[in-house]
């Protein structure tokens, strides 16, 4: 009989240090978190095209915990989306609950992990823009000298764009740290334009308002594949503006988004809708009606 598939060796470490020891020994091993991406990509009818060596992380307790720290909330990389949702909306950083809820379906959220989501090599997930706006950091552990480093989320899209790997060989995302925040409002929209060129537009925004003044505002735009677009200058410009924004300020915002989305020059729908989403977000803040969106 024809045998296409080599039988992989599967390791089940129980601690992070055991995991790192294993990966040091097995330099070509691939980490297996929720498995949704790998199996989605490689699935044929009955056999999954597995790498030669797999290190399953499902028994590593340390990776599946969430805890509060001075910095904020630390989320273990192996926390599934569904477990994160059960922590509760009020405990999670602003916007995290809504964004996770919009990812995939229930069976997928039961298995997909936050670490696996961030380690995707092929696309930018829904959480990337929000975590970047929230100034989240990821902790990366490596086998060399018990290495531990922290990286900003914003680097991930750049690495994707430049076809560089976020993780060096043997490195493992261990946790995601999200600082305590004081955001009043988070806004996440995923739009499928229905064209064949681009499948998704992700708009994410955060804002705080004090006494009718926009005390802080952040916005990110993503097409899920080529990068996260963000303009800190316009964010700074809007900070301190009184609501509602005047015609001039909105025009400045529009122009900034046109410039920001210049890499999408052939995708007029995405550029137009990015402006529309930003304006709508601001309108909702003015109306204090962020949950009232019907579309």
């Amino acid at each position: 009989m024809y045998q296409k598939y080599n039988s992989p060796r599967v390791f089940f470490p129980r601690t992070i240090s055991e995991t790192l020891e294993m990966v040091e020994r097995e330099s070509n091993a691939v980490f297996w978190a929720g498995g949704t991406e790998l199996s989605c990509r490689s699935m044929r009818k009955d056999l999954i095209d597995l790498p030669k060596t797999v290190i399953s992380l499902c028994l590593v307790e340390e990776l599946a915990r969430a805890s509060r720290s001075e910095y904020g909330l630390d989320i273990g990389a192996m926390m599934t989306f569904e477990r994160l949702l059960r922590i509760g909306k009020s405990t999670l950083p602003t916007g995290l609950h809504e964004t996770i809820n919009s990812i995939g379906n229930l069976p997928l959220r039961n298995r997909a992990t936050i670490g696996g989501h961030l380690a995707l090599q092929t696309r930018i997930g829904d959480l990337h823009p929000l975590l970047e706006l929230l100034d989240a950091k990821i902790e990366i552990r490596s086998p060399s000298r018990g290495g531990r480093k922290r990286s900003q989320i914003k680097k991930i899209p750049i690495m994707l764009l430049e076809e560089k790997n976020l993780l060096n060989s043997g490195e493992l995302i261990s946790k995601i740290s999200i600082p305590t925040d004081n955001w009043d409002i988070a806004f996440h929209r995923r739009i499928l334009p229905g064209n064949d060129e681009n499948k998704v537009l992700i708009f994410t925004a955060l804002a705080s308002v004090e006494g009718g003044v926009l005390s802080e505002c952040r916005m990110a735009f993503s097409d899920g594949c080529t990068g996260i677009l963000r303009d800190r200058e316009i964010e700074a410009h809007m900070t301190g503006q009184k609501l509602p924004l005047g015609y001039r300020e909105l025009k400045i915002l529009d122009e900034a988004i046109i410039e920001l989305t210049a890499p999408w020059k052939t995708r007029s729908y995405d550029r137009k809708t990015s402006m529309a989403c930003a304006r709508d977000f601001l309108k909702r803040i003015e109306d204090n009606n962020i949950n009232g969106m019907i579309l």
Partner: peptide, 27 residues
């Protein structure tokens, strides 16, 4: 084709709904 989209492969694994096509037997 094992994409885990249609839900025909639904099982309860330790009490949670998951798609069996997106898992290897070892799991």
């Amino acid at each position: 084709d094992g994409f885990g989209f249609a839900g025909s492969d639904t099982i309860l694994l330790d009490g949670k709904i998951v798609g069996a096509n997106l898992m290897i037997a070892a799991q």
